[in-house]
């Protein structure tokens, strides 16, 4: 897998922004299709379009896990 140069931005109370050279695979190892070069990955668990974010965290008042 060629993930060299990929970057993940952890958005407080929000998704993970993934940009660069990446590939997203499902549990069967199949590529999850996406048409965009930068994606937002759901972190709150409530998105209707997982693994991508659909903004629902804003309605759920999602707080990221703390140490």
């Amino acid at each position: 897998m060629s993930a060299e140069g990929a970057q993940i931005v952890v958005c407080p109370q929000g998704p993970l922004i993934l940009r660069g050279d990446f590939e997203i695979l499902d549990a069967e190892g199949e590529a999850v299709p996406t048409s965009r070069e930068t994606v937002a990955l759901c972190r709150c668990g409530s998105s209707a379009i997982k693994p991508f974010c659909d903004g629902t965290h804003k309605l759920k008042k999602f707080e990221m896990p703390r140490d």
Partner: peptide, 14 residues
């Protein structure tokens, strides 16, 4: 726009 703007809002705001 559901998928795109969930990305864009993070980039536009921050």
């Amino acid at each position: 726009h559901v998928e795109a703007d969930a990305v864009h809002e993070q980039i536009a705001g921050r």
